[in-house]
Amino acid sequence: MFRIFNRIRSTGRLTEPLPSPDQTVAELGSACQAEIAARFSGSLAIRMVDAGSCNGCELEMHAVNNSYYDIERFGIHFVASPRHADLLLVTGVVSRNMQAALQRTYDATPSPKLVVAMGDCAACGGEFGESYASCGAVANVIPVDAVIPGCPPTPLQLMQGLLELLHDLPGQ
């Protein structure tokens, strides 16, 4: 037990100012926190849907929750049900076997809602494109508000993409 406490104590706080190739990220972060405060009562709830991803995007989605990025500090968190979500974060090409499930998840999300296509597959079909098994990009199945390209997008690119989307939302 004391060893655990000791490790927690000596690990300390890791959360760092985002090491941005683009110096506007930190500013964007606080700007978006303000947006989230105004439009989403301080918290933006994300439901992720893997519609045919290779799992690479999911790994990076896990990473934005680790102590270094800690996306919750901007008021962004992942929820278990589309009923609780403001935003659907969709990864992968939409496999035909997932088409109905994605549509139902979209329908179950209360309006107004946002849809973000994360990664090259979701954005444009990537390595898989359209075929007997795949509907291609997410926009072929449900309306998409923003895309975050990358294979997979790094945690930083994911955060930037989300923050930019919020920043660019049309005024009320």
Partner: peptide, 21 residues
């Protein structure tokens, strides 16, 4: 089978670089 993307079919006709990707 929900994430069946047709990988085996997609590979047909690819060159080696495409196969590795």
């Amino acid at each position: 089978g929900y994430v069946h993307r047709g990988v085996e079919k997609l590979a047909e006709g690819r060159d080696l670089a495409g196969l590795a990707r």
